[in-house]
Amino acid sequence: MGPLFNASDEWSFVIALVIGIAFGYILESAGFSSSRKLAGVFYGYDFVVLQVFFTAAITAAIGLLFFEYFGWIDLSAIWINRFYTGSAILGGAIMGFGFVIGGFCPGTSACASAIGKIDAMLFLGGFVIGVVIFDAFYPLYEKFYKSGNQGPVKIYESLGMNREVFLLIFVAFAIFAFAATAYIQQKVSQKSKKY
C-alpha cells in the first residue's frame, strides 16, 4: 500500500526525476512555455491555465480518493501542507502580482527556459533574487511567517462539510468554470477580430 517510499528515500529521488520529466513535458505540450498564453487567463483571450490546472486538481483529488477506496494508498500518511493563515494569504497575494507582472510561475518558467524563452530565464533570475531578499530580511517577519498555524487542515473540515460532498461541489464548480470561460474566450476573440 502506498505511499511506497518516504520523500527522503533515495528511490524517491529517481522517481522524482521521472515525475519531473512528465511534469515538464505536459506543461510544455499544453502551451505553458508561453507567457502570453499564460497571461491570457487574466484578460480572457486564453483560459488554458484554468482548464489544465483545474482538470489536474480534480483528476488528482478524485484519483487519490479512489486509490484510498481500493486500499492502494493511505491518505493519512501523505504530506499535507500546513495552513498558516496570514502567511498563506499574503504569499498568495504577492504571487498574484508576480504572475500578472512576470507572466510565469516557477514551474512554467523552468519549462519555458528549457525551450529557449529568454523572458522565462529572466523570470527565474528574478525568482532567485526574490528568494535571497526573503532570506536576507527573514528576522523582520519570522514571527508573522510562523503565526496562525492551523496544521494540515483540509478544506472540507474548514468549511464543516463532508469530504465527498465538497468534492462534488468542487467538480460542479469546475465544469461551470470551463463552460463560462469557453464562452468568454469566444466573445473576447470575436471582439478582437473586429479591430
Partner: peptide
Amino acid sequence: AIIGGALFGIGSAFGRGCTSGAGL
C-alpha cells in the same frame, strides 16, 4: 519578467510553496 520573478520568489516563500507545490 525580473520584477515578476522576484515577487514570486518572495510570495512563494510566504506561501510555503508556489502554484505547484502549495496550489496544485
